[in-house]
Simulated scan of single mutants.
Amino acid sequence: MPAPERIPPGSVTVTDLLAKGELTVRGRIREASNAVLYCSVAYEGVEAHCVYKPVAGERPLWDFPDGTLAQREVAAYEVSEATGWALVPPTVLRDGPYGQGMCQLWIEADTGEDAAQLLALVEEDEPGEGWKAIGFAEVEEGRTALLVHADDERLRRLAVLDAVINNGDRKGGHLLAAPEGRLYGIDHGVTFNVDDKLRTLLWGWAGEPLTDEVLRVLERLEDALADGSPLATRLAELITAAETEAVRARVRELRRTGRHPEPSGQWPAIPWPPV
């Protein structure tokens, strides 16, 4: 099945395929905490695989309104697209066999690169060259090891996106290395809360200056979030007005400080389990 860049030229767009195509459930991804269905989607002679997460299969959370996780996944995609980084696979909100839900293009992982090349546990007290320290984690028999992630520009961009959308669950399993050097983040249901919920494995740049590229992207994103803009109008359909304003505030704060955020100390900084 084609990746986004491999949809035949001149054919339907990926989002049209996901939004208008016929969904056929092929199986269920049982490791997920909510209902996640592996599907095929076909439209005007084009077919792909996708993930369908019906709202009816969402488990209630104490700190998020019920039945809103699918919309938040779509909002994360919209903000990702506005950055120009394309860090989230194409994602739409649509009706399906089990009611309204999120539908996201399935990305085949690159067998030559996986989370093991992006995350690692090391016995040393300091990360080696090319790695950034996250913190110490307990391993078997009460031993501790240093959890590190790669000093990788793709991860750094994702860390910025997570700060903007206030991602409360950036685990190692939510990093998807794709062919041709692409990296995607998936599972963005617990995002956009008005309270600080940032929990991530990508703390390696905490407190460090943002790159010039990131600052330029944040400037464009602030403009894209202006009242009445297409992005602001789209977010109003997916999250609350207060949550949209919180996105604007986080972008402004990142531009003001010019630095990656640091853990607040008021919320667990690293999701559990981390991978």
Score class of each variant (00 low, 15 high):
G45M: 11
G27K: 02
A163V: 10
A86P: 00
T200F: 08
P268A: 07
G258K: 08
D227T: 14
A241G: 06
L17R: 02
Q266S: 15
L238R: 10
A178D: 03
G10Y: 14
V41S: 06
P8I: 11
P209H: 13
G57W: 05
G101S: 05
A137P: 00
R199W: 02
E253Y: 05
A133R: 11
A145Q: 14
E138W: 05
V88P: 01
W106L: 11
E58L: 08
E138H: 01
D223K: 15
G181I: 04
R256S: 13
P90T: 08
F136W: 14
R30Y: 04
A116K: 09
N34I: 09
L146M: 06
Q100H: 02
H174N: 15
V41T: 13
A226H: 13
V55D: 02
T13Y: 05
G135W: 05
T240C: 07
E129Y: 07
P54H: 04
W106H: 13
A177R: 12
G96Q: 04
L119A: 09
R220F: 08
T111N: 06
L176I: 14
G27C: 06
V14C: 12
G142R: 00
E219C: 03
A19N: 03
W106C: 11
A177T: 08
S264V: 06
G168Q: 10
V194Y: 04
S80I: 12
W203I: 07
R220Q: 12
Q266H: 11
V194G: 00
N166S: 01
G45W: 12
P230V: 11
R26S: 05
A269E: 10
A226F: 08
C39D: 02
K20Q: 14
D63K: 00
L121M: 08
E108Q: 15
L118W: 06
I134M: 14
T111Q: 13
R154E: 10
R255F: 05
E44W: 06
A115V: 15
H260I: 07
A3Y: 09
P263T: 06
D212H: 02
V74Y: 12
E129S: 14
L61A: 12
G96V: 03
I165D: 00
V12C: 14
L23D: 07
E113G: 00
L105Q: 06
L221R: 13
D162A: 09
T244C: 14
E243V: 06
R30C: 00
C50A: 15
N167V: 07
D110A: 12
E22H: 12
R199D: 00
S33N: 02
P127Q: 09
G142V: 01
P2V: 13
P274G: 00
V190A: 07
V148F: 07
T13F: 07
R182N: 11
E58N: 03
E126P: 00
L37W: 11
K53I: 09
Y38I: 01
V275H: 02
P127A: 11
G258M: 10
P54E: 00
V79K: 03
E140F: 11
R72V: 06
P65F: 07
G99L: 04
W272F: 12
L231A: 12
G189C: 07
L202H: 02
E126V: 13
Q71V: 00
G57R: 03
D169G: 01
D110V: 10
Q71H: 15
G99A: 04
E123M: 08
V88M: 05
A246V: 01
D66E: 14
G185V: 09
D196R: 10
L147I: 09
R256Q: 13
H174W: 03
W85K: 05
V74W: 08
H149L: 03
P60V: 02
E44Q: 15
G207T: 14
